[in-house]
Amino acid sequence: MIDFSNIKQFTTPRPDKPSVFGTAAEFDALPETHKAQIWFLDTTAAKFLNEFIDHTCLLSDGGWAPFSYKNYKIIEEFEHAVDLHENIPLLKKWMYSRSIPFSNYVFVLTDSNEQPLLMTWKMAIKYAFDLFISGDTLIFDPTINWAVYNYHEGKLFFAKDNIYDPSGMELYVQELNERKKKYPQFRHPYL
Rank of each mutant, 00 (worst) to 15 (best):
R179E: 07
T43C: 07
F132S: 02
I125P: 08
G63N: 09
V148M: 06
G168N: 12
N50Y: 14
I38M: 01
Y149D: 00
A24Y: 14
N145A: 03
T110N: 12
D136E: 10
I7N: 04
D42M: 02
E170Q: 08
N6K: 07
T143Q: 07
F158C: 00
H188A: 08
A25R: 09
K126Q: 14
I125M: 03
L117G: 01
S134P: 00
N177K: 14
T11R: 10
K8W: 12
K47I: 08
G22K: 07
F102R: 07
R14C: 01
Y183I: 02
Y127L: 04
F67I: 05
T56A: 10
L90A: 10
I133H: 04
P15I: 03
W146N: 05
L49M: 12
H34Q: 03
M1Q: 08
H80T: 06
K122V: 00
P18Y: 11
V20H: 02
F186H: 06
S68P: 04
F27I: 10
W39N: 03
P18L: 07
T23Q: 09
F132I: 02
K93F: 12
E114R: 04
T11M: 06
D111H: 11
Y190F: 13
L131C: 04
E86Y: 15
F52D: 03
L131N: 01
A159E: 02
M123V: 09
T110W: 13
T44H: 15
I53A: 00
F129R: 05
E170K: 13
K126C: 11
D111W: 12
F67C: 00
I163R: 08
D130C: 00
H34F: 06
K122S: 06
E153Y: 14
P116M: 13
P142S: 04
K8A: 09
K8Q: 14
W64E: 10
K155M: 15
Y72K: 00
I125T: 09
Y164P: 01
D83M: 03
L59E: 06
R187V: 15
I7S: 09
S19K: 04
C57V: 11
S112N: 11
N6W: 11
N6M: 04
N104W: 14
S97K: 11
D28P: 01
F52W: 11
F48E: 06
M169V: 15
F132V: 04
H34C: 03
L138P: 05
E114H: 12
L131Q: 05
G22L: 08
F21D: 01
P89T: 13
F21I: 09
T23A: 09
L117R: 06
S99K: 14
H80S: 02
P101F: 08
F158S: 01
T44I: 15
L138R: 03
L118G: 13
F10G: 02
A128S: 14
S19R: 03
F52A: 00
F27Y: 15
L117T: 02
D136W: 08
L59V: 11
T33M: 07
N162Q: 11
N71R: 05
K181A: 06
Q37H: 12
S5K: 13
F48M: 06
T44Q: 14
A29K: 15
K73Q: 14
L59P: 05
F40C: 02
F157W: 08
I74S: 04
P15N: 07
S134L: 04
E178Q: 12
T143D: 05
W121C: 00
S112F: 13
K73I: 10
Y105W: 15
H85S: 13
I2N: 10
A147C: 06
